[in-house]
Simulated assay, not measured.
Amino acid sequence: MPTSVQIRPLQHVSAAEALAWHQVVAASTAHDLPGVPTPDPGQIHAQLTGPALGSHRLTWLATGADGTPVGVAALRVFTSPGQDHLAELELHVDPAHRRLGTGSLLLEAAVAACRAENRRSLITTAPADGPGEAFSTRRGFRRAMTLDHLMLRPDELDRADLLLLADAEHPGYRLTGWTGTVPDALADAFAAAKNAMNDMPVGDLDYGSVAWDADRVRAMAEVVAARGDTLLTIAAVHDDGTMAGYTEILLPQGSGPRAQQYDTAVVPEHRGHGLGLWVKAAMVRRLGAEHPGVVEIETDNADDNVHMLAVNHRLGFRSYRRTREFQLDVPTT
Rank of each mutant, 00 (worst) to 15 (best):
L164V: 04
R143C: 04
L107R: 00
L105N: 02
A116K: 11
P183N: 01
A87E: 09
E90H: 10
R174A: 15
A193H: 00
S80V: 12
L107C: 00
A87C: 11
F190L: 01
A65Y: 08
L122P: 00
N118T: 10
P183M: 08
D184P: 02
A74L: 06
R159Y: 07
L75C: 02
P131R: 06
E117V: 08
F78L: 11
L164D: 13
M145Q: 15
R76Y: 09
F78M: 09
L165Y: 05
T124Y: 00
I123Q: 15
L152C: 09
R120S: 15
E156L: 15
G71P: 10
G103H: 05
D167Q: 14
F190N: 09
E117Y: 06
M145D: 14
K194C: 15
F135G: 03
D84F: 07
R138F: 03
D155Q: 13
G67H: 09
V72A: 09
D94F: 05
W60A: 03
E117Q: 14
N118K: 12
P69L: 13
R76C: 11
A128V: 07
D129R: 08
H85Y: 09
R76W: 08
L162V: 14
Y173W: 07
L61V: 01
P69E: 11
A168I: 01
P154Q: 07
G132K: 04
L152K: 08
G82K: 12
D167P: 02
M145Y: 09
L100Q: 15
G130D: 14
A112T: 15
D155T: 13
S136K: 00
D161N: 07
A116N: 07
L58E: 13
L89C: 00
R115C: 03
P95V: 06
L162W: 10
A112C: 00
A191W: 05
F135D: 03
L147S: 14
V72D: 10
G130H: 10
L163I: 06
A128T: 13
A110C: 00
L107N: 01
R142E: 14
D94R: 09
R115L: 01
A168S: 12
F141T: 01
L163V: 08
N118E: 12
L86Q: 12
A112E: 12
L157D: 06
R98D: 10
L175S: 12
R138C: 05
F141N: 04
N118C: 08
W178H: 02
L122Y: 00
E88P: 00
G140K: 02
L162M: 01
Q83Y: 04
D184W: 03
T63W: 05
R143H: 15
D129P: 01
A65S: 14
A144Q: 08
A126M: 00
E90A: 14
D148K: 09
A109H: 02
Y173M: 06
R142Q: 11
R119A: 04
R143L: 14
I123W: 04
